[in-house]
């Protein structure tokens, strides 16, 4: 009996530690960031928004904007690759990251679980399949018989569910592309931006091609629920739009057409 009690006590203490050992409490998220001096940006490897140059530095439209934003806050930027896109809200709440800034679709889950910026980019979800069968599947209706691979928790999965497609959910969009290229799935739904960067001639997936485009969606940046940083970012976006630096950057990464006016 004593032993059981001791074990229970130890377990309780550990739990309290998990919950309680957060350190200092701050009223505002911006104060917390300023105090520790870093803004940790949660990303995935997703050209042209976040990807590495030859020297291993993170570049891309989102990466550069995030760096500028951190500078405007007077803190260092740090990039952390999210191991599992599906757990991004959990990562935020656990303070593993301070924001998720990675061509993130503002879907219901994100809007409910995060404090988000206004949309800054319009993206489409697009069906990707093998070139040699592309002619046969040019309408949404014709896709019904295909087996899909999508990223779990992505806007692509939402599309698969909404259209009642037979699909398998994997950890990342790149895994979904791998499925289509290997022939273990017939089609995938991924971000148009990513499709442009990753498939077709001159890429690792020359046999794949874009097919039907699905709904449009907005990209935004997500912070912890209640964070004041979202509003600060809106102001920063507007400032950059006004002085032309935002469109300049969009030009650089060839995504000018998708930008939203501020």
């Amino acid at each position: 009996m004593k032993k059981i009690f001791a074990i229970l006590m130890a377990a309780a203490m550990m739990l309290t530690c998990f919950v309680g050992c957060k350190g200092k409490e701050f009223e505002k998220d911006s104060e917390y960031i300023a105090d520790k001096g870093t803004l940790i940006v949660g990303i995935t490897d997703f050209a042209p928004m976040d990807y590495k140059d030859e020297d291993g530095n993170w570049i891309g439209f989102d990466a550069e904007m995030a760096t500028k934003f951190a500078k405007s806050l007077g803190v260092e930027v740090e990039f952390l690759v999210l191991a599992d896109w599906g757990k991004k809200i959990m990562e935020l709440n656990d303070k593993q990251v301070d924001c998720v800034w990675n061509g993130m679709t503002l879907n219901e889950e994100v809007l409910n679980g995060m404090e988000t910026s206004k949309p800054y980019c319009k993206n489409k979800q697009v069906v990707v399949l093998k070139k040699d069968i592309a002619d046969k599947y040019t309408t949404k209706e014709s896709l019904k018989t295909l087996k899909f691979a999508v990223e779990e928790g992505s806007a692509g999965e939402d599309q698969a569910v909404a259209n009642d497609w037979d699909y398998v959910a994997l950890a990342a969009q790149s895994d979904a592309l791998k499925e289509v290229a290997a022939g273990t799935s017939q089609a995938s739904v991924i971000d148009l931006l990513m499709a442009d960067a990753m498939i077709g001639e001159g890429t690792d997936y020359p046999t794949l091609t874009k097919s039907v485009a699905l709904t449009e969606e907005d990209y935004g940046v997500g912070f912890r629920k209640g964070s004041d940083l979202a509003e600060k970012l809106n102001d920063f976006f507007k400032k950059c739009y006004d002085d032309g630096s935002l469109m300049e950057l969009a030009e650089k990464y060839n995504i000018k057409d998708t930008m939203i006016a501020w």
């Binding site: 791998k178 499925e179 290229a181 290997a182 022939g183 273990t184």
Partner: peptide
């Protein structure tokens, strides 16, 4: 994935 990606036959 190997058979499909490397050998071309899934």
């Amino acid at each position: 994935y190997g058979p499909g990606l490397i050998l071309g036959t899934n």
